[in-house]
Simulated scan of single mutants.
Amino acid sequence: MKNPLITVIIPVYNVEQYLEKCLDSVINQDYPDLEIMLVDDGSPDQCGEICERYAKKDSRIKVIHKKNGGLSDARNVAIDVALGEYITFVDSDDYVSDDYVATLYELIKKNNCKISVSSYIRFGQDDELKDDNKIIKEYVFSPENAIKTMFYQKKFDTTAWGKLYHRSLFSDGLRYPVGLLYEDLPTTYKLFQKSDKVAFSTKKTYFYLRRSSSIEGSPFSEKKYESLLKIIEEFEIYKLQNLEFSKAIDCRILNFLFHLLFETEKNSHYENTIFGMIKKYRLKVLNDFNARKKTTISILLSFFGISVLRFFYTFGKS
């Protein structure tokens, strides 16, 4: 029986120093039946030329050049024209193991579901990576349990990458919100909700690069703040309609707030505003025994003020 075509979508913007490693890891997949879509999102460097060069040597690669519209827009453009029965995303500064696609597809085939998830390794540019796949476990979740697990950040998170989706999940116009940062937060749970089951493997097949010039590493901005407000507003509406997810969503919102708090400047308006929002959620999450230990510790430290939180955050990073 012929394997289904799987589309790998790679948005590309200003990553020329990392792009070749990413593309090499995708074209060398054990799973051969791929459509590889490179979306040059108006990149100002040599990324467009690199994409075209790879397309000339691998017929599975298709290149889309477009005006800069952001990560969501780049993904959406590719989703609209993708031919694969399944879709997965890879960020262009990351790379994947040779069995990334095969692992995700085997999970779907084995469990007859529409979404699969594998684990990942977060690394810095100077880190030495080691094989960490000696013990591999697999789990199958109902959509409800998958969403709760994701919001509690227990086994996996909301990232678009590291997952394989049946294309039917996008068929009713569900797309990533254009103009919004952290676009996977208000999107992935909707895809999970539409699936029958979600299969997960602890096998680490995705390698996520931490870099200062990424969205995560860039300084706090008005756009980050506006995205934060819009995402929280959407989550609050979703909670009213789905009370069973209230505690898990509150926990994810609080972790999101802690994450952004440490990006703000000391004594800034943003710092004070976000800390005020943390105060709103912390007591509810403190009583939630499903919250991660570091979330509970962060809550307890928050009662001593922002400066204490910052000190322990810096200490923890070092």
Rank of each mutant, 00 (worst) to 15 (best):
T187P: 13
T188Y: 02
G179Y: 07
Q193A: 14
Y208H: 13
K203I: 02
Y182D: 11
E216C: 10
T205H: 00
T188Q: 05
Y206V: 03
I215Q: 14
S195A: 15
D196F: 00
L191V: 06
R211Q: 13
G179N: 02
L185C: 01
S195N: 02
S214H: 08
T205D: 00
L180P: 07
S214I: 09
Y189F: 15
D184G: 11
T202Y: 08
T187H: 07
D196M: 11
R211A: 13
F200W: 08
S201N: 03
D196G: 13
V198I: 15
K194R: 14
S214C: 10
G179L: 01
S201T: 12
T187A: 13
Y208L: 13
Y189V: 09
Y189P: 00
R210N: 02
I215L: 11
G217E: 12
K203C: 02
S214V: 06
R210P: 00
E183P: 05
T187M: 12
G217H: 10
K197V: 00
F192P: 04
K190T: 06
L185W: 01
F207R: 05
K203A: 12
V198N: 05
I215P: 01
R210M: 05
A199H: 02
K190M: 13
S195R: 08
K190C: 03
T202I: 09
L181T: 06
S214E: 07
S213I: 08
T202L: 13
F200P: 03
L191A: 07
E183F: 05
S195Q: 01
L181C: 03
L180N: 03
A199T: 08
Y206A: 07
F200E: 01
I215K: 01
E216W: 06
G179V: 04
R211F: 01
S212Q: 11
A199Y: 10
E216P: 00
S213R: 15
L181V: 00
L209A: 12
V198Y: 04
K194P: 05
L181G: 03
P186Y: 00
S213V: 12
T202H: 13
G179K: 02
S214R: 08
L181M: 15
K190A: 01
L209S: 03
F207T: 06
D196H: 04
K203N: 09
T188K: 09
K197E: 13
G217P: 02
Y206W: 05
I215T: 15
S195C: 08
S214G: 14
F200L: 12
L191R: 03
S212T: 15
R210C: 00
G217Q: 11
L209F: 08
K194G: 13
Y189W: 09
R210H: 02
I215W: 03
T188H: 07
R211Y: 04
F192C: 14
S201M: 12
L209W: 01
Y208S: 09
R211S: 12
F207S: 10
Q193M: 14
I215A: 15
K203W: 07
L181N: 06
F192Y: 14
S214P: 05
V198E: 04
T188F: 06
S214W: 02
A199S: 15
L191P: 05
T205F: 00
K204H: 11
K203F: 07
F200A: 11
S214N: 07
G179A: 03
D196R: 06
L181K: 12
R211N: 15
P186I: 03
